[in-house]
Nucleic acid binder design. Structure first.
Lengths: 357, 357
DNA sequence: ATGAAAGCGCTAACAA
DNA sequence: TTGTTAGCGCTTTCAT
C-alpha cells in the first residue's frame, strides 16, 4: 500500500506520471488505449499500465467526459422497476449497453409527466449519449427536450410522433389471444354467460385501445355479434377489476365462459374475487391474459397468456439509435402466445440461469 | 428559438453571462442556488434564471462534479432486475435518493464476482458518492475496492465483514414460517408423509443456511424429532426443485402434508410438478414459501408466505451511510408473515398506485 | 517517441 | 454587490 495522495483518495494521471517519470499526456495515452497510434514505445506503455494497476488508478470519467464531450453513459427511463415487463427491459437494456462498453443508467419516473421531464433533464445534465424512453406518458414532450440538445432517443412500448418508436403489436397480439380464447372456450348457447368478456385497462390508454379494437374485430368476424357490451375497461387497478368482475358475475348469474384480462394487475384483482368462489365454479371457463406471469400458468383453469418480446423490443431500439433513421417511424413487434401449461419450454427459463436466487 | 451555440447544442454559463452582461461566477451563483449567500441582487439572480430557462440551460454535471469532487450520483449494485425482491429494492432506493436531490444509478451484476468488481469500479469512476451493495456474492472484495477510494458503502441482504450490513432476519422469519406451517398442517400419524419437508435453495448460501437452521430448531422443539432427513436443498433452480419434489413424492408415496419452499423460484418448479397431479391430491397439504408473490396466494391449497421488509432494509442502509458507523455491524430486519388470502390488506398495494400498468 | 500547454464547464477564493 | 482567476483530471493539438 502506498500512501494516499491529495485530499481525497484518488490516484490521477499526474501521480502516475510522477512515479514513472513520464509526462501526463504519455500516461493518458498509455491508459486510454490510444498509445499505439501515438507511437509510444510499448515498454513505456506497459510499465505505465502496470504502475497504474498497482496504484489502483481509475479513470475519472467526469474529467474525461468533460474533455471529450461524451460521458460513456446510456440512459433509459421507464414507469417503474417493480413490474415484470419493465424489469425485463432493464435487464436486457443493461446487457446491450455493456456489450458496447458503456454504462447503463436506468431511472423510473412513476408515470408522472413532470417526473419524466425532470429525469430526462437530469440524465442530459450527466451527458448521456442516447436515451430509451419506455412507456412514457408524454413521449413527445420528452422528445422536445432531447431534440433541443440533439440527443438521440427512441420511444419504446408507447409510441410518440416526434421520434422513432418500437412497440409491441398490441392489435395482432390481442387478435391471436382472442382467437385462441374463442377456440378453447367451452361451448354454450347462453347469449349472456356464453360470451367472452374483456376486463381491465383504460380506454384512453393506447395499448388498451388497440387490444379492444382487436377483441371486437375478431369477435365480429368469428362470432358475428358486436362486443361493445362485453367490455369493462375502467382501470388497471386490481381492486377495480375485482369489483368489475364481481358485478359482472352477479349481473349475468355466474362466471362467463371466457375472460380476456388486460394485464397481470387486473388478473390479480380477478383472482381476488375468484378466491371467494367454490372450486366447481371454474369447470367451464377459459381465461386469456394480455401479459405474462409464470404463476398464472398454475391456476385450476386454463390460462392463455401473451408475452411481449422484450428482447426484440430493445434490440430494435438500439438498431434505431445507432442507425440513421429519419422521421418518426413506428416499428411493431409481434408478441408471443403462451398456451396453458407450456411453462417448461418458455423463454423465461433463460432468465433463471442468471437470476435464480 | 435562439440559434445554437458552439459545436454541440449545449448552452453554458458563459453563454448566459454574455447575454445578461453578468460574469460567469455570478451566473453560476444565480443558477446553483448559492446567490443568496453570495449577496447577489435578487433582481439579477431572477433575470439570469429567466434567461437560463429561456435558453434551455442545463448544468453540466460532469463539470460541476469535477470541480466540486462530488457527482450527485448514488449507486446500487444488485444481482438482477428481473426479480420481485430486487425490483422493489430499486424502486425504494430511487425514492430515497430522489428525496436527497441526487441521481440514482442502479446496475445489476448477474451474480458474477468479476462483473461485480468491474461494475463497482465503473461506478467509482463516475464518482458516485455512496454505494449500496445488494446481494453480492463477494461483498468483502467490493468493500476493499470501495475502501481504497474511501467510498461509503453498505451491504444489503447478504452480509459482509468489512462494512456494515443490513439484512433480513432469515432465522426469525423461517422460525415464524415453520411454526405457522406446523400449526395449520393437517393432522396425520404417518411418520413419513405426515412431516414437513424443506425444498429449494443451496446449503452454501447464507440465507438458506439460516432458514434451514430455523426449520430444524422449530421442528426439534415443537415436534421432538430431527429434521435432517427432511431437507432437499440442492439449488434455486425451478427445474431442480420440480425434480426434487417429484422424487420425494414418489419415495413417500404421495404428497407430504407440509412443504417449506425456499423461494418463489423453487415454488415455480414445485408447481410445475403439481400441475401433473389431480385436484384431489391437494386436500391435505399446506405450503409455506419464503418469499412473496401475489399470484401464489391463489392456489387451491393454503400458501403461507414471508415477505422481506424491503422498505426498512433500504431505509436502514441509508441511515448507516449517512450516520457515523464504526466497524461492520450487521443489522437484522424482521420479515413479515403473510397468511393465506390476506392479499387485500397487503403492503404490495401501495406499489400498485404508482405501478399499475 | 514524448512533452508542454490549452481548454472542456463549472465553482470558490480573493479582489474590488 | 459583483468580477477575475485558478484549477478539478483529462485529452489533444502542436512542438520537439
Amino acid at each position: 500500500m502506498k500512501k494516499k495522495q491529495k485530499s481525497n483518495g484518488k490516484t490521477t494521471i499526474y501521480d502516475i506520471a510522477r512515479s514513472t517519470g513520464a509526462s501526463p499526456s504519455t500516461v493518458s495515452a498509455a491508459l486510454s488505449g490510444t498509445w499505439r497510434s501515438r507511437r509510444i514505445k510499448e515498454s513505456t506503455a506497459l510499465e505505465i499500465q502496470r504502475l497504474a494497476e498497482e496504484q489502483g488508478y481509475t479513470t475519472n470519467m467526469q474529467a474525461r467526459g468533460l474533455r471529450k464531450a461524451r460521458s460513456g453513459l446510456v440512459g433509459m427511463v421507464l414507469p417503474a422497476h417493480f413490474n415484470r415487463f419493465y424489469a425485463a427491459m432493464s435487464q436486457i437494456f443493461e446487457a446491450h449497453v455493456r456489450t458496447r462498453g458503456m454504462c447503463p443508467v436506468v431511472v423510473s419516473t412513476l408515470r408522472e409527466p413532470e417526473e419524466e421531464r425532470r429525469t430526462v433533464e437530469t440524465l442530459i445534465s450527466y451527458a448521456i449519449e442516447s436515451l430509451l424512453i419506455v412507456g412514457a406518458t408524454d413521449p413527445d414532450a420528452l422528445s422536445d427536450i432531447c431534440t433541443a440538445v440533439n440527443l438521440k432517443h427512441v420511444n419504446v412500448d408507447l409510441p410518440g410522433t416526434k421520434a422513432p418508436s418500437v412497440i409491441s403489436d398490441n392489435y395482432s397480439g390481442a387478435r391471436q389471444l382472442t382467437h385462441e380464447i374463442l377456440k378453447s372456450m367451452p361451448k354454450s348457447d347462453d347469449p349472456v354467460r356464453g360470451r367472452p368478456y374483456f376486463i381491465g385497462g383504460a380506454t384512453w390508454d393506447f395499448a388498451t385501445a388497440e387490444r379492444i379494437r382487436a377483441f371486437k374485430d375478431v369477435i365480429a368476424t368469428e362470432c358475428g355479434y358486436s362486443a361493445d357490451e362485453l367490455i369493462l375497461a375502467q382501470s388497471y387497478d386490481p381492486d377495480a377489476s375485482a369489483t368489475d368482475v364481481r358485478m359482472l358475475c352477479e349481473r349475468i348469474g355466474g362466471l362467463p365462459t371466457a375472460l380476456f384480462i388486460n394485464s397481470t394487475f387486473s388478473f390479480e384483482g380477478v383472482l381476488k374475487y375468484f378466491s371467494t368462489l367454490p372450486a366447481e365454479a371454474f369447470n367451464n371457463i377459459v381465461v386469456g391474459c394480455y401479459d405474462y406471469d409464470p404463476f398464472a400458468s398454475f391456476m385450476h383453469f386454463p390460462v392463455i397468456m401473451v408475452r411481449q418480446n422484450v428482447d426484440r423490443l430493445v434490440e430494435e431500439a438500439f438498431r434505431i439509435i445507432e442507425g440513421d433513421v429519419d422521421g418518426a417511424p413506428c416499428l411493431q413487434i409481434e408478441p408471443e402466445l403462451i398456451r396453458p401449461r407450456t411453462l417448461s419450454t418458455s423463454p423465461s427459463e433463460t432468465f433463471h440461469h442468471n437470476m435464480t436466487r
